[in-house]
Amino acid sequence: MDAILLQILNGLDKGSAYALIALGLTLIFGTLGVVNFAHGALFMIGAFCAVTLQKVLTLSTISIDPEKKDFLGQPLKVETPYVHNWFGEATGSSIIEWSVPLAILFAIPVMMAVGYAMERGLIRHFYNRPHADQILVTFGLAIVLQEIVKYFFGANPIQTPAPDTVSGSIDIGLMFGFAENAIIYPIWRLVYFAFAFAIIGAVFAFLRFTTFGMVIRAGMSDRETVGLLGINIDKRFTFMFGIAAAVAGLAGVMYGPINPPNYHMGMDFLVLSFVVVVVGGMGSLPGAVLAGFLLGILESIASTAWATTMIPGINQIIIYLVAIIVLLTRPRGLMGRKGVMEE
């Protein structure tokens, strides 16, 4: 029992990432009808927002000769540990330590801007083109984004540690009445799960309970009629693209401490996220979230010793296997709506 619970917990963090990316993909697909292969790159850019912020905050590590003066004639060393200078030694170092959570604030506007630029600059021109063209152009964009990041940050993974207070492990088995040391679990992964849950909740609440969200939902089911009612639905859909980009970006920001970001992490997640979207059902938001968690948990259960001894290598292929079975038995996915991508 405790082994199963542990595997479920293990699956939650990956599942959360899948769910968040798939949620964004589905939002884009449901609103704009575009298959966005660059979504993994958005996830990666989010992670690199955290890296950037960390770099900006730790500029002090660059040691500068105190004898040199800048153009004003003041010693350069003054501005080196500037967070320390502004907030004092203790606050400064804790700001640096909390750079990953702080990056959330930094990433939201950045990702919204990136998403907005992407939609206005590129994807807008592809609404009336076949899906194959959309896939291909966003695939090209993903390569470009990836290479740009590689150019600035290099090819090696960059450590973005979690704050000390949440970087250890806790024994959550005790809380559920299991024996001591039965379920040791890193705190950050729980944080990630809670964070993902909050984001998903926020997106759903936004769509459910605000007028804006209502219009979006109306537009998702019948874009033309909403347009006829005098609502500029395109503008709102562009905003939703920004939201979707931000969701993917935030998933990336918080994923840094679990897996150090590198430039191709987006591609690794992209393929799986697409599988998740298809399993959940193209265009179904709850389906995407459900399938994300389901596949994440299935993957971690398949990596247990008894599963791999039963069927060697099952952990490597389980997600694809499930996807194939689902697609063949329930072509619309688990919660797919009728009429979406039927063709």
Binding site: V35, A132, V278, A323, I324, L327, M341, E343
Partner: peptide, 11 residues
């Protein structure tokens, strides 16, 4: 359509 692409990708 897209499902075919994903299926082949999965395989």
């Amino acid at each position: 359509g897209i499902y075919f692409s994903i299926l082949t990708l999965a395989f």
